[in-house]
């Protein structure tokens, strides 16, 4: 909260030209336009825009979920597994909880450890309840809290480019990744690194 107010105060003071210039760098269609503050499973605060620079695989989940959410993590892992080591280094995975009431930093940390997620590539994150609603809207995820504490939700993996624009989306989850989606992932990684030999090769 304090940070936000400071940012605001700064923003109001800074010459508009400067602000506009800074904003111009971020594409209009970027999910990173979202200003909400997030916390990762190590307790670090971050804004989505700080993820710029590498393609992201983004999904929403909640840790107490027994059925679909483990599958979401499995699906993201499956995407990683079908990449080679070099490609894998250039893809980041961001999982955002839709249950901020129960998913505190500790809960996220526990899940990251239990599922042996590599912190150099994987981030489990939480934000405010309003932030959840906004980020879900940007990712096209629909969800509803149920009376028993579970969530009813659509499950999707979303691929963002280096500037946070949505490149691809799949609702086909499972340990065999959606071929069309994988093609997009490889293309994104290929376009990022011209040296990568995989771009456009061997489409499924």
């Amino acid at each position: 909260m304090k940070i936000l107010i400071m940012l605001l105060a700064l923003a109001l003071m800074v010459a508009t030209a400067e602000v506009r210039c800074a904003e111009a760098a971020l594409p209009q269609q970027s999910v990173y336009q979202l200003g909400d503050s997030f916390s990762d499973h190590n307790g670090q605060d971050f804004a989505l825009a700080s993820r710029r620079g590498k393609p992201q695989l983004v999904a929403m989940f909640y840790t107490s979920c027994r059925y679909v959410c483990p599958l979401i993590i499995d699906s993201a892992k499956a995407v990683e597994h079908s990449l080679d080591a070099d490609q894998r280094q250039h893809l980041q995975v961001l999982l955002i909880s839709m249950d901020p009431d129960r998913d505190d930093v500790a809960a996220l940390k526990a899940t990251a450890q239990a599922r042996r997620l590599d912190s150099s590539r994987w981030t489990l994150a939480r934000t405010s309840r309003d932030g959840v609603r906004r980020v879900a809207a940007l990712l096209g995820v629909r969800y509803r809290a149920l009376a028993d504490g579970e969530f009813n939700h659509t499950s999707a993996l979303v691929l963002l480019d280096i500037d946070g624009r949505v490149l691809a989306r799949t609702e086909k989850l499972g340990t065999a990744p959606d071929p069309a989606f994988m093609q997009q992932v490889r293309a994104a990684l290929g376009s990022q690194h011209a040296t990568a030999p995989h771009a456009g090769s061997a489409p499924d």
Binding site: M1, L4, I5, L7, L8, L10, A11, V14, V19, A22, E23, L26, Q33, L34, G35, D36, A47, A49, R134
Partner: peptide, 12 residues
């Protein structure tokens, strides 16, 4: 720095 649009919403 980058202006965070929703931060603006904290205006009373």
């Amino acid at each position: 720095m980058r202006l965070l649009p929703l931060a603006m919403l904290m205006v009373p």
